Amino acid sequence: MKIAIGTDHAGFEYKEKIKAFLTAQGHEVKDFGTFSDAACDYPDFVFPAANAVASGDYDRGIVLGGSGNGEAIAANKIKGIRCTVCWNPLSAEMARRHNDSNVLSLGQRMIEESDVTGIVQTWLDTPFEGGRHQQRIVKLEA
Rank of each mutant, 00 (worst) to 15 (best):
V53P: 07
P127A: 15
F128T: 03
G33P: 08
D100S: 04
R132V: 08
G61R: 13
P48C: 08
A95R: 12
G118V: 11
F47A: 10
A95G: 14
A49R: 00
A142D: 10
G26W: 09
V46G: 03
K19I: 06
I78N: 11
N69R: 05
I111S: 08
H133G: 06
E71R: 01
Y58K: 10
F21Q: 03
L124F: 14
G61T: 12
P43H: 13
W123M: 09
V138T: 10
V138N: 15
E141W: 01
F128V: 02
K15H: 02
T126C: 14
E112V: 01
D59A: 14
G130Q: 12
G26I: 06
E112C: 07
L106P: 08
G131V: 01
L106W: 14
P89G: 00
G107H: 10
V103M: 13
S114Q: 14
V116N: 09
D59Y: 09
R97T: 08
V116E: 08
V103I: 12
S91G: 07
M94Q: 12
Y42Q: 06
G6E: 06
C83D: 13
D31V: 07
I3T: 07
I3P: 13
P48D: 00
F45N: 06
I5A: 10
H27P: 08
A50H: 04
G26N: 09
K19L: 09
G56R: 09
N102D: 12
G56H: 10
I62D: 05
V53H: 12
I78Y: 06
I81Q: 14
H98I: 14
G56T: 02
G68Y: 02
L90I: 09
G107M: 05
G26F: 12
T34R: 05
S105R: 03
R96Y: 09
D100G: 01
R109G: 03
R96F: 07
A24V: 00
G11A: 07
G26D: 02
K79M: 13
V63L: 08
I3N: 15
N102A: 11
V53D: 06
G56Y: 10
I3R: 14
C83N: 14
F21N: 04
S67H: 01
G80H: 15
I5H: 04
D115M: 15
V46R: 02
A92C: 07
I111K: 09
A72Y: 00
F32E: 12
D59R: 11
A74I: 03
D41S: 03
M110W: 05
D31T: 08
K79Y: 10
A4G: 11
T34D: 08
